[in-house]
């Protein structure tokens, strides 16, 4: 029955929230990307020095992959059907069957093996999300949220991308909703998810997540002055890439969350949330200023010193700005 409804691709800032926004909207529950992101309390920060990506520590600006899908299930009562496969052939057959039933299917994939990604953007990141909505001969029709228009991908490339092994291996993950509620009680849910996210950022038990994680990263930056200058520059570049390029980047997530707060402010008719949204925008802007400073550091010629203390201070002030937003959100009385 879904077949009658024409599928419409849309451009989003981030893959997982984009896929879920489009999928829910397609199934009759219009949810903006920002709403999806906020409702699953997906805003995060984590700096995990002992998990390495390409020799560099993991820096995340949002919650773990798949947590948006899980968060929506938990908070909205959406039920998703998920399939993973140990056998790639079975995983491709299942995909074809689902498409024949007229379903649009969410899938996890690697970025590196998707041929429509620009070569410069192809890194080994395995937790990308996209929607497959059809097949024409040997080509799958793909709605990749981070692209402006829909894409095509040859079957053998998609198979490779879905079945890479390694960190965050997708194992051919496919997903689609089994149950989508018609109505959402925003007045009840929004205050809960907002508080939950603010708490997660402020009151983490571990010193590498939330606001404490941002400060831990700031501290590591200060220590770069004693490290090999070439490595120090690569580290700075890595932070910026994790922030600006991967998915939508750290600053980008702050803007998405600010947009969510604005939407919530209108739904709940709550001026405090509107103010918090503006503060979050300012924090996002500060993240971008930090990126600019870091790249200016990278540009320094050999022998010219980089002012790491300056960068540390900037990052600490980003942490201050974000902490203030979360305190404001915790103080907000639901209308």
């Amino acid at each position: 029955m879904d077949r009658q409804k024409a599928f419409q691709h849309k451009h989003f800032a981030h893959c997982e929230s984009g896929v879920m926004s489009l999928m829910m909207t397609h199934h009759g529950l219009p949810l903006s990307e920002a709403m999806v992101f906020g409702l699953s309390s997906a805003l995060m920060f984590a700096y995990i020095p002992f998990v390495k990506l390409g020799g560099m520590p993991l820096i995340a600006y949002r919650s773990r992959p798949k947590s948006i899908i899980r968060g929506l299930q938990k908070n909205l009562g959406i039920k998703m059907q998920m399939h993973t496969f140990s056998n790639p052939r079975k995983g491709m057959e299942k995909l074809d069957t689902l498409l024949q039933q007229g379903k649009i299917v969410g899938a996890q994939s690697s970025v590196f093996w998707l041929p429509y990604f620009p070569p410069e953007m192809r890194f080994h990141f395995n937790a990308h999300n996209l929607i497959i909505y059809g097949k024409e001969e040997d080509q799958y029709l793909i709605s990749d949220p981070v692209f402006e228009s829909s894409q095509r991908c040859p079957a053998k490339d998609l198979e490779k991308a879905r079945f890479v092994r390694g960190m965050m291996a997708p194992k051919g993950l496919l997903y689609y909703p089994r149950h989508v509620p018609r109505h959402i009680n925003y007045k009840n849910i929004l205050p809960v998810v907002i508080r939950k996210n603010a708490k997660a950022m402020l009151k983490t038990p571990v010193p590498i997540a939330g606001i404490r994680g941002i400060r831990a990263l700031a501290k590591s930056i200060a220590k770069l002055s004693t490290k090999n200058p070439r490595w120090a520059k690569l580290f700075l570049g890595h932070i910026v890439r994790m922030q600006e390029e991967i998915g939508t980047g750290g600053a980008g997530f702050r803007f998405i969350y600010a947009s969510f707060l604005q939407e919530s402010a209108a739904i709940l008719d709550n001026q405090d949330l509107e103010d918090a949204s503006r503060m979050m925008t300012a924090a996002g802007d500060q993240w971008r200023e930090f990126a600019l400073m870091a790249v200016k550091g990278i540009r320094r010629k050999r022998g010219e010193a980089i002012d790491f203390t300056d960068l540390q201070e900037k990052l600490n002030s980003v942490a201050d700005a974000e902490a203030e937003v979360y305190h404001t959100l915790l103080d907000t009385k639901p209308a």
Binding site: K233, L234, G237, E245, G249, A291
Partner: peptide
């Protein structure tokens, strides 16, 4: 829609 930020481009190209 953004056609990109040269700051991000520099970091990408460094990698």
């Amino acid at each position: 829609a953004s056609s990109g930020w040269k700051i991000e481009e520099e970091a990408t190209m460094q990698a």
